[in-house]
């Protein structure tokens, strides 16, 4: 998937909780407009929101790219950040390294990655400690 295939692209700033979550709304409107059924839209939005929030909570900055190819919606989130040392551990329900500040805002349940897994058809995580993380999720109509 190339950069120019992005139908919608969003910049995400780490730590900027107050302006985040906007992409969900734009993506929702887009999918609604092209007549995608609600339950499908919901799956995409939940997973997208979680992926975006993980950049906000755990990384420095990133980009979110929304693509549609054939009957598949693809969300790719790439960030510059600490990376994930143990992906299997991070995927476990309840595992979280969220700071106290982040937890006060209602994050840190350790359910974001499980929610992404649950709501997507494929979830790929490429990560390098000290460099960053790439999350690719596919949703098949």
């Amino acid at each position: 998937m190339k950069e120019e295939d992005c139908l919608l692209k969003f910049e995400i700033q780490g730590g900027e909780f107050l302006d985040s979550g906007e992409s969900s709304v734009v993506i929702k409107d887009y999918l609604k407009k092209i007549g995608i059924p609600h339950p499908f839209i919901r799956r995409v939005l939940i997973a997208t929101y979680e992926a975006e929030m993980n950049v906000v909570a755990h990384a420095e900055r990133g980009t979110l790219c929304f693509m549609i190819a054939e009957k598949t919606v693809v969300i790719r989130v790439q960030d510059k950040g600490p990376g994930i040392p143990d992906v299997d551990l991070a995927m476990q329900k309840g595992y979280s390294t969220a700071t106290q500040e982040v937890r006060q805002m209602g994050f840190g349940a350790g359910m974001g990655l499980p929610n992404m897994k649950q709501n997507s058809d494929t979830l790929i995580i490429n990560t390098e400690v000290g460099t960053g993380t790439e999350v690719i999720m596919e949703f098949t109509l």
Binding site: F17, E22, V25, K28, L45, I46, Y49, G106
Partner: peptide, 21 residues
């Protein structure tokens, strides 16, 4: 989906959650 949501969170991110659900 479609529920009424009771919470004590008041920051803007609750809007994203509301939109998704």
């Amino acid at each position: 989906p479609g529920s009424l949501w009771i919470t004590i969170q008041k920051h803007k991110n609750i809007l994203g959650v509301a939109a998704a659900k």
